[in-house]
Design a protein around this nucleic acid. Sequence first.
DNA 1: CATGAATGAGCTTTCATTCAT
DNA 2: CATGAATGAAAGCTCATTCAT
Lengths: 204, 204, 204, 204
Amino acid sequence: MVRKVDPVKHEEKRAEILDAAERCFARHGFHGATIAQICAEAKMSPGHLYHYFPTKEAIVWAIAGAGLAYATSRSAQILYGAHPIKTLVAEIELINAGHEKAGPGVLLDVLAEAGRDPAVGEILRESSASMRVLVADFLRRGQVNGQIDPDLDTDTAAAVLISIIDASKALSIRAPNLNRKRRSKALERLITRFLSPPSEAENA
Amino acid sequence: MVRKVDPVKHEEKRAEILDAAERCFARHGFHGATIAQICAEAKMSPGHLYHYFPTKEAIVWAIAGAGLAYATSRSAQILYGAHPIKTLVAEIELINAGHEKAGPGVLLDVLAEAGRDPAVGEILRESSASMRVLVADFLRRGQVNGQIDPDLDTDTAAAVLISIIDASKALSIRAPNLNRKRRSKALERLITRFLSPPSEAENA
Amino acid sequence: MVRKVDPVKHEEKRAEILDAAERCFARHGFHGATIAQICAEAKMSPGHLYHYFPTKEAIVWAIAGAGLAYATSRSAQILYGAHPIKTLVAEIELINAGHEKAGPGVLLDVLAEAGRDPAVGEILRESSASMRVLVADFLRRGQVNGQIDPDLDTDTAAAVLISIIDASKALSIRAPNLNRKRRSKALERLITRFLSPPSEAENA
Amino acid sequence: MVRKVDPVKHEEKRAEILDAAERCFARHGFHGATIAQICAEAKMSPGHLYHYFPTKEAIVWAIAGAGLAYATSRSAQILYGAHPIKTLVAEIELINAGHEKAGPGVLLDVLAEAGRDPAVGEILRESSASMRVLVADFLRRGQVNGQIDPDLDTDTAAAVLISIIDASKALSIRAPNLNRKRRSKALERLITRFLSPPSEAENA
DNA sequence: CATGAATGAGCTTTCATTCAT
DNA sequence: CATGAATGAAAGCTCATTCAT
């Protein structure tokens, strides 16, 4: 007999579904979006979709995991690049600019759902933990070369920094008409001063 | 002679429904909670509930409005009291401690829904705007007496500060096991340094 | 003790309710109209309304009875007046003119409902029977003085004549833009020729 | 390769639903019949039924349209056959005989609903108009060969004739115990005399 | 692999009717 | 006599999920 499934094609289909689902979830929320909408968006019948995911919940979990994994990997890129704080703030601005066209994405939905669906909670906490490791490591390196206050508890500071990304999502919804330059400057100031050693106040 | 309606009783019933609805929404989200659950929680038949609210949406809007109005009024209390920053951080800790028993409430749901339901968006933006006025005023007073950096754009800074409250909700979901003392200290440091004038770095 | 109820006032209230109900039924049909609408139209609370009618059905029956009784009494007036056929056709035109403002009333609803609700059926058949007696009597008088074909079975002819009134309701709904003069002329011709003795073809 | 939809099966299912719905509407009226009843009658789940019709209204419209279309096509058959008037009256008798078992059908409901639901009104008026064309044409042909009064306005006369079919429905409800022979004779006389040229009074 | 027909529990909402005041 | 608060069964409709093809 022939091979049952081509695992590459299988993964591609899964990715297509997740792409479609993310657009639907971003537009209507996890509970507002329907399987039928996702099927239409993915150009796929419901019977076929259920070959790839056993339940709608499973799609939600996959979306939550993928979104958070992307945020983690993007953070790694930024933190190991040049001028991480400036880049991070620029990234936030870039994302928020995207909201004007496509809405704020699913992060807030994940946060809200995490308080209810234990599986989403678990995914969020694990992702946050590994991102925290990443950021805490960055902070420790900064402490070594004197750019970051050695008194900071790196783990706690990392958690706070991560939540500032969430805050920026909230910020762009609560006050969408804020001047972008001023918002960037304020966020940069917030982060820079939080991390800086006591003596001097400006570095990135 | 005959009383037409007793507006006090009417208001009380409405409040009972909103109380019940808030508990249900906090547990299951705006879309996950059902009218039947709210009726059970409020010990009321669906027919009766619909004497007080024309649709489920109307209940969502009322909950969003009430929650945000409470946050605004509590903020006013804190900002006009003694040691506002310390008190604010303490308040955040108090609220987060509550999450362990009752979940994180509906704020994140409001933020997520605001990106979808224009009515919720409007409610959120208006509430945020009036809260921003409040906080910006506080900051301006601080600038006058030298406790806050006169270079800060008070409006932008106010928006950022408000979103830090949202961030603290996210923080307590992403990292529920963080040491409380350290978290408080970090938040206090974050806020204090954000606001302080350039020369000295420690005051509240 | 005092008299329990003033029967005159009681009848007046009943009449007010029936007035209100007829307007609602004409607008929305027997099943489409709600007790709440009737209460609003009669400026009355539902509790009070139920002092006068035990069920919604009872209101329907009363409306059906009243409408049919009115038609019967109006017919009597016409049949015992001068130029009954011309007057009848004029009356039909008058009624149909009213439809343009207020809709076709409840007659068709009564006919439709009579096929389902046995009580309405009974009311309709009894009313029709007594109207038929009236018309048959008119026809017999016409036969005596030679204006009406003595070969006609008066009872059957009476039934057919009555149903022509129903037909005219249907006519004004099916073809609302028909020229009125021509419609009147056609109806008059229909009735006149139906009744006339064989020799001459024109009289009223 | 893969069939998208089998339009034949789809049409069959639609027809089954309409069959079931017609029975329910005939028994309980458009507003009295429920989706659940139609589902039971069609042996189908509500979810499935809504694959074929988007709303209950759409079913009502389809039933109204189908019933009127049938009446129109049947009329065409009769008018182009031999002895149209005798056949028409016989058909009316046949239909009315059916009422004793199955009730008077939905025609009166359509007429009543047409005064309220503009969509039904539109369907009725369009169907009536095309039927009127058919009947008027028949009358004109009769005028040519001298069987029908050339003085008749064919369009108005056609409208009146059509409404006599409605009248016969009403007749069989108002007076179900009328002698059939006599009723047939009276209807035939009504129609024949209405159409006949002035000189002779008997032809079909 | 792929379809879409089919299910049925459950959703929000309505409404005739009752009851305490 | 009069109110309107209160009920709860049932309405129309949705949607995650399954199944025959």
